[in-house]
């Protein structure tokens, strides 16, 4: 017999019993539907202990590497501590190192959080108090940077935005939970074409993924499309131009709204027009919900496999 720990309680698992059966028997209102490993309704994440590989069948490489598994087909041999899929777990204290402008309305926030493990492109939950928690993506690289770097667009009436712009200073404390999200360099072959498309601060995770890919020796072509409302919003463009000049396989394609530009500078239309052959590409999509939804659907209909499309929609907090 073994156990699972779930939201602070311990549940025994009888021999042959699944994690789902044990949770339901213990009175936990766990979601499920097919009970056969197909529908993914029961998805959970193990943060301690390794779920058996069969219980991860059908999940993406990124999900597997993060400990996701399907409780309805999981018969563990050793103890597991599990979380609901949207639970980012315990938070750590972090110290603000620097807040610097990247454009008119985008800042770069660097914080130090000792022992925080992540992959570039994942996101964290940043909290500046019990009722002020927001998700931000990571542009830094754990092996190159001693800080977590975020690119944050300052919304005029945004609560976290105002807090960052008006109050927060180097030396202040924040809390950070996570990481989460599957927008990172995992399950990509070194020779596979990579397609990175984002708008606004959607560049943050893509920049993280790009750096990670290059550091991992990615050889296939990498095309990065970055959209902004105006030229001024194309932040980091000097760095990105320099990378694309230094690397034969990197192509940086900035698009800013401008009637004279192809497709008026719409990054989605520009990318869709240029990328006709996407069946084998590893695709990363980040930015506003509408952009991500449109690109995901159009690229899928054009032959991209959903397994090859990683995305983060920057949905506003409720």
């Amino acid at each position: 017999m073994t156990q699972i720990t779930y939201e602070g309680r311990t549940v025994d698992i009888a021999p042959g019993e699944t994690v789902l059966e044990a949770l339901l028997r213990a009175g936990v209102n766990a979601p499920y539907s097919c009970r056969a490993g197909n529908c993914h309704s029961c998805l959970h994440r193990a943060i301690d202990g390794a779920p058996p590989p069969q219980s991860q069948s059908g999940l993406t490489d990124a999900q597997k590497s993060m400990g996701f598994f399907l409780p309805c087909i999981c018969r563990p041999m050793s103890p597991l501590t599990i979380l609901r899929p949207d639970d980012l777990g315990a938070s750590l204290e972090a110290i603000v190192r620097a807040i610097d402008p990247l454009s008119e309305d985008i800042v770069r926030l660097r914080i130090e959080a000792d022992g925080f493990a992540y992959r570039p492109g994942q996101f964290v939950e940043l909290s500046a108090g019990e009722d002020l928690k927001r998700h931000y993506s990571l542009a830094s690289h754990p092996e190159e940077d001693a800080f977590l770097e975020m690119h944050i667009r300052l919304h005029h009436d945004g609560r976290m935005s105002r807090h960052l712009a008006d109050k927060l200073q180097a030396g202040d404390r924040l809390r950070v939970a996570g990481p989460s999200g599957s927008c990172f360099y995992e399950g990509v072959h070194a020779d596979q074409p990579m397609l990175l498309i984002g708008a606004g601060t959607g560049l943050a995770p893509l920049y993280g993924v790009l750096r990670d890919a290059l550091r991992s020796g990615h050889r296939g072509p990498i095309r990065l499309y970055h959209g902004a409302r105006s030229r001024k919003g194309l932040y980091l463009s000097d760095e990105l131009r320099a990378i694309s000049k230094a690397r034969d396989n990197v192509d940086y394609r900035p698009c800013a709204f401008d009637p004279s530009a192809p497709h008026g500078g719409d990054v989605a239309a520009t990318a869709l027009d240029a990328e006709q052959n996407v069946a084998h590409a590893a695709i990363f999509l980040c930015g506003g919900e509408n952009l991500v939804k449109r690109l995901k659907r159009d690229l899928f209909m054009r032959g991209a496999s959903l397994k090859n499309i990683r995305s983060d929609a920057f949905t506003p907090a409720r």
């Binding site: 539907s33 097919c34 009970r35 056969a36 197909n38 529908c39 993914h40 309704s41 059908g58 959903l306």
Partner: peptide, 18 residues
């Protein structure tokens, strides 16, 4: 798409508990 997979498994006569 996970729901579609559940649908196809059922329609193919595969293992399911529906």
């Amino acid at each position: 798409i996970a729901k579609q997979k559940a649908f196809l498994t059922m329609a193919f006569g595969g293992p399911n508990a529906y």
